[in-house]
Amino acid sequence: MALLEVNNLEVYYGVICALKGISFHVNEGEIVSLIGANGAGKTTMMQSTVGIIPKKGGSVIFDGQDITKTPCHKIVQLGMTQVPEGRRIFQELTVYENLMMGAYTVKDQQRFKADMDRVFELFPRLAERRKQIAGTLSGGEQQMLAMSRALMINPKLLMLDEPSMGLAPILVDQIFSIIKDLHKAGTTILLVEQNASKALEISDRAYVLETGKITLSGTGKELMQSPEVQKAYLGG
C-alpha cells in the first residue's frame, strides 16, 4: 500500500489553475522525486498536499487516512512534514530553539533528547552552533537546520522542496548524500528539485511536472535515459 497517495489534485490561485489534476504516489521506503522547471507547480503541489494552501479538488491519502481536508498542523502530527522551499527557518530564534519548535508536538522529554542527539550526530556543525541565532547561519547551515527541524518529529514521510537551491556545488553534494543517509535509515522521501540529474540519480521513481500536469513518470533510471527528460532537464 502506498504511504502517500494523491489523486487528481487541483489547485487554483484565484482564477489561475496551478495544478490541473495531478496524481502520484509514494510507497513506504521509497525516494520519489518530482522534477520540473521553475513555475511548473512543484511548490504548489507540496503546499497543498500538506494542507498549507487549499485544494480545489482531488484527494490525499496518507498512511491509510484521508487527509484531504485535514489542517496542516494535524497532518504533521500524523508523521508527514516538509522542508519548505527557501528553508524558512525561524531567523530570530537560536539553532536550539528552532529544533525545539520542530519538536513542538513531541511531549516526551526523553524522546526529545534522543532526537536532538540524533540530528546533532547527523549535522555536527549545528551542534557546534546550537546557541547561534539562526538568521546568522550560512545558506548551507540553514538548509541543514531546516532539515533537522523537520526530522525532530521522526517523520514517516519527509518532503523536501528544492533543498539544493542556492547552494554551492560542494554543499549540494553534501545535502544529497544526507538525503541518501536519511533514506537508508528508514525515512520515506518525496523530493522536489530543479536539479534533475542529482534528483533522478538517487530516486527510486520520479515524475515530471509541466505547467500543472504530470507528463512523464518512471524509475529514476528510465527518466534519466528518456530523450524528453534529457533534452528539457538534463541539458543534453
Partner: peptide, 8 residues
C-alpha cells in the same frame, strides 16, 4: 506557514 509545519 513554517509554524504550521511544526504542528502549531
Amino acid at each position: 506557514d513554517a509554524a504550521q509545519l511544526m504542528g502549531i
